[in-house]
């Protein structure tokens, strides 16, 4: 299992990555959408955890690019926003949508479920 964490907060993704690594989960991180796309080209990731609000390209726009090129990849979204529109946009992707600050146990559960779920129909 290899996971790609994408968030513009370096300290957040580096700590998350280290915590996942300590649990035997291989997790890399990127702090920009460009870096994320480059890393996805170089390594086959099973799952990407994407922050919804990022500079330049939003997590939802990045999701569209990644799912087009890597249809097998699973996704989990993270956000600090709780507006109705953002929440609906996240839910419409058909993937898990977690609000920051997240419970690490919930993240682990979402990762395990996402990777064990059969492919979902995406909106």
């Amino acid at each position: 299992m290899i996971i790609l964490l994408v968030d513009d907060e370096l300290e957040l993704v580096s700590a998350m990555s280290e915590r996942l690594n300590l649990r035997g989960i291989d997790a890399d991180y990127a702090t920009t959408w460009k870096q994320a796309l480059k890393m996805a080209e170089e390594k086959k990731y099973d799952l990407a955890v994407l922050d919804v609000k990022m500079p330049g390209l939003s997590g939802l726009e990045l999701w569209k690019l990644l799912k087009k090129d890597y249809p097998e990849m699973k996704f989990i979204f993270l956000t600090g926003h709780t507006s109705q529109d953002d929440f609906k946009a996240g839910l419409n992707t058909g993937h898990k949508y977690l609000l920051k600050p997240i419970s690490f146990d919930v993240l682990l559960e979402c990762i395990n479920r996402s990777l064990s779920d059969s492919p979902k129909k995406e909106g």
């Binding site: 700590a15 998350m16 600090g80 600050p101 690490f104």
Partner: peptide, 19 residues
């Protein structure tokens, strides 16, 4: 949103210290 981001980082750093 910005404060939530800071809390999220603090949460992960605290969690990492605990780990």
């Amino acid at each position: 949103h910005e404060i939530k981001n800071h809390l999220a980082v603090i949460n992960e750093l605290g969690g990492l210290l605990q780990d």
